[in-house]
Write a protein that binds this DNA or RNA. Structure first.
Lengths: 198, 198
DNA sequence: TGAATAACAGATATTGAAATCTGTCAGCGC
DNA sequence: GCGCTGACAGATTTCAATATCTGTTATTCA
């Protein structure tokens, strides 16, 4: 009965992800999670005040993991336009990969995210901050001409929403997508005041 | 029994819209439509081969009606940048108005549209064509600098998706929306090569 | 003493039988 | 004859009884 192992929030989150993977969001219950850990479901409530808070924590873990590579790009050095393009393409690629690799799990996390608005908002705000970081670098380098960095970062985030917001995930596999992404990124870079080489 | 009035597709569509308004998409049945027209439901099937085709026709009517004012703007004359801005803002306003005025009916039509992919695709393509028309005018006027008008039109459409795609309708009422729309439109106009008169 | 439990109430989900709906078609009546 | 009807089969939906789940708490046990 796992008597040597203490029950931690971390282990509960791990088990919850397993249960979600196996049963999906609709079928996953706190009782399932407890069963997977071989404890009573009451014990789970000692570490998370509600099922909703447990779901929020899982969502946060997932989003934070997905954000890691983007943080690295934003904090790197180099010409801002290239870095912004790389950042955007990475973001699209990360999402696209998640859908392709395991559409079912993606759907599960998507549904999960819909109930964790606060967490999602923080995640989006962080992404806008990362874009703003790159834009600010570009202004410093003279490659971007921007009045309001924060507002422009938000505009870039909004403008690319078709290729990162999960509501549009179904359309990411269309064949014209890459060409359209190229056109969009080109338009945005030009709008930020970065002359396109070639 | 309405003996003087012939049963036409038009009358059926009218009745279907009424039924949808009253019962919503989930509850609306062909039997309801027939009852509203005081005919047997078999008669409806004389004019529409299936419930799906009836729904498609209703969706098309609705979308076409919504598109009318935008066609006018695209076909008007005047400086392209101003016209594009007006076109985009009108598009946002039309959608936003629909959500505000009757959120329930909007949800109904949204669900309806999800099942009428062909119709929706045609509608979107038409909107991209309208944008392309304005862009081409701008190129002729020297106010836009664009390599590929068609691709740029699509990029503008994609970039503004957050403010016209119904998947984002819930966010349209947020207080920062207007300011974010301003930033987005500014960025796009700059990207199209139109110098902003501040 | 403090982490875990087991029993519990109210809320939510499942299930299968009954009702309704979709789509078809032979026939009625204008 | 032509447009409509009404009855029908199979698919889908409803509904209410039944089971399960969430969140709480008094109790156990180490």
């Amino acid at each position: 009965m796992n008597e040597a192992v203490v029950l931690t929030p971390e282990r509960i989150l791990e088990a919850t992800e397993d249960v979600l993977r196996r049963f999906g969001l609709a079928k996953a219950t706190v009782v399932d999670v407890a069963r997977a850990l071989d404890v009573s479901h009451g014990s789970v409530y000692r570490h998370f005040p509600s099922k909703a808070s447990l779901r929020d924590a899982v969502a946060k873990r997932w989003l934070d993991r997905a954000n890691e590579p983007l943080c690295k790009i934003a904090q790197a050095s180099g010409p801002a336009p290239e870095r912004l393009e790389k950042w955007l393409r990475s973001m699209f690629a990360i999402k696209q990969k998640k859908v392709c690799d395991d559409p079912e799990m993606f759907a599960t996390y998507l549904a999960l995210a819909q109930g964790a608005r606060e967490v999602v908002k923080a995640y989006k705000d962080k992404q806008v901050d990362l874009i703003a970081k790159i834009l600010a670098d570009g202004v410093g380098q003279g490659t971007f001409q921007i009045d309001d960095v924060k507002a422009s970062a938000r505009a870039v985030f909004d403008a690319t929403c078709r290729y990162h917001h999960p509501a549009h995930a179904e359309e990411w596999s269309e064949s014209e997508c890459p060409v359209r992404i190229d056109a969009l990124i080109g338009l945005l870079l030009k709008g930020l005041g970065a002359p396109r080489k070639h």
